[in-house]
Design a protein around this nucleic acid. Sequence first.
RNA 1: GCCGACCUAGCUCAACGGUAGAGCACAGCUUUCGUAAAGCUGAGGUUCUGGGUUCGAAUCCCAGGGUCGGCUCCA
Length: 683
Amino acid sequence: MSTQIALPDGSTKQYDDGVTPARVAEDISAGLARAAVAAEVDGALCDLTAPLAEGRHELRLLTDRDGDAALEVLRHTAAHVLAQAVVRLYGEGVQYTIGPALIDDFQYGFYYDFDLPRSISADDLAAIEGEMRRIVGEKIPLDRVELPPDEAKAEMRRRGQHYKIEMIDDLVAEAGAAPPTVSLYRQGDFVDMCRGPHLPHTGKLGKAFKLVTAAGAYWRGDERNKMLTRIYGVAFFSKADLDAHVERIEQARQRDHRVLGRQLGLFLIDEQVGPGLPLWLPKGTIIRMELETWLRGELLRRGYQPVITPHIGKTDLFRTSGHYPYYEHGLFPTMQLGEDDGDGYLLKPMNCPFHMRIYKSAQHSYRELPIRYSEFGTVYRLEQSGELNGLVRVRGFTQDDAHILCTHEQIEQEVASCVELTKLVLSTLGLDDYRVRVGLRDPDSSKYTGPEKNWDLAETNLRNVVRRFEMDYTEEPGEAAFYGPKIDFVVTDALGREWQLGTIQVDYNLPERFDLTYTGPDNAPHRPVMIHRAPLGAPERFIGILIEHFAGAFPLWLAPVQVAVLPVSDKFADYGADVARRLRDAGFRAELDDSPEKIGAKIRRATMDKVPYMAVVGGREAEQGTVAVRERTDGDRGPIALDAFVEALAAERDSKGRTRPLAGADGTDATTEGAEISKQEGL
RNA sequence: GCCGACCUAGCUCAACGGUAGAGCACAGCUUUCGUAAAGCUGAGGUUCUGGGUUCGAAUCCCAGGGUCGGCUCCA
């Protein structure tokens, strides 16, 4: 009776039965034993203390160098230590539910959800963290016990852990006929149900952890359930890693679009105007105007027909579209004009019903299709108050909307063209860190409308397109709109939270509801299909993300102020005014700083405003008709003739930053403090 | 909407039951200056709103509004 252990270096060790990975680690070296957090036996993770069965096994020891897999074990144990601390401090009334490790989350490393008899304050967090440190000091072993479900339930019942009993019942139900065993981890006086693996004892958690915040979270993520208390924390293998994490969060807060939006004077959300109703300040308006102007040009080139529709429409219009009463909870309340007003009017939550009426205002032939109506239409949705967030979640926003009416055969080509446009928008701005989500219907839900065969067809169309573009994408059931599947372009903000930008949606429903038709070659009426699409999604959200992406340092073509003209003293203000006028005549947004400040102060101000170029002018420049160019981050670039400066600026502006004659060494790239600005890609 | 925290000058913050303050920004004056902050002076407050406790409230309590972090939602 013996156990053979094959190690990654190719060697094999021989043991009696019941040997544990921890024991093997000790045999190899004391250092390895110290560093090990878990083991991988024949490809499966397990505890260091798990006895190995008779026979031959491949063993790999997981240490702090093994990245996410090791971190996950550490953080998972941290969650258990947190739970033990909470139970110790708040006693029998505490029920603990789930406490996973978080690996991909930008802000947090683990959490645990509790049903507590009272709420948690900042002082409590400090006390809990103190208790956790005590538990770490006690080096309590985590012992795994496998029990039949009934015994595990009995254990949890003794401890008053009713959520755990529910979870065991679910496990049994999932497992079907053969009842599994349930693994419990005993950690001193604390017992939790858990898959594992875990650190062998609490001392291994070390000191590099802290609790961050407490928040509410519904049991099982369902708002009909009780709200639990979630405590978030972070944990690392070393203090240095923890410090680096804290520093990263701090950096991220600096590029938060709400912070930069105020600092740079881009937008304002004013309490008296109303929550989620942004005011665009002059500088922010420039950015938005440039983006929109550019996009309008691209749309015209692609055969879109611009239309303009009102902000309100009769409630009946939205009954026909089906949005009312389906989305009534998300609408601003109906406007009633008088007694005989019937249904009243609604502030529009979307543009499509209006575009449907435009289509319907004339007869259409198959020869006209596809018809593409585009509109930057501002819509209003009563988003839940707790959801509002700067520019990225608002109640009044604009969709760079269009509705394409086409035949079934044209869908793929049209969707492909929308994908191409969306990718152009993203790549032009260097936003290449996005993911593509194909939102499909949830087979278990009844919220979807329309015949199954249309859904199947539309889902196939979308799949074909994303494959044709060879895009990485994930299919996500349940993420479809109620009327059809969609392709979403999803990005993350500075704090790692995901937001949907561009979207392309196939809709068989609305043409049906509005009874849209076209005359086919057979001289008979046919039903067109509709595509909703918005490459930016909404300029509000898009620019919010863009502010964070550029850390406020916009490329020349978008920069609210493109050139700051800085006379070294008042004496040269006249020449400065000339330069500024010349630049404005050439179509640039140039500002003269004729304040009585020293040149250093003017440079500092322009730098903090993240103006791309400064033109410093003094006696030498006035005499020779030059400007001393200073680039936002590269600094002083020396004198250049004004004409040449204008020409170089135009080249950079018109190429949207792909050509940068005035930039540093390689002429194509610029970085900003703390910002990782991706290279502008070709189209 | 739910859980929790927060709200003081335009902004960032201090004062934590006893006369509301600083830095930046703003205004005036002096300086006329060569690549990231010249100096002096000044103005600026319903301490989010309303109610309560107290001799006295920015500070304690209650309600409302707003913001932030989560959860839920997202056409």
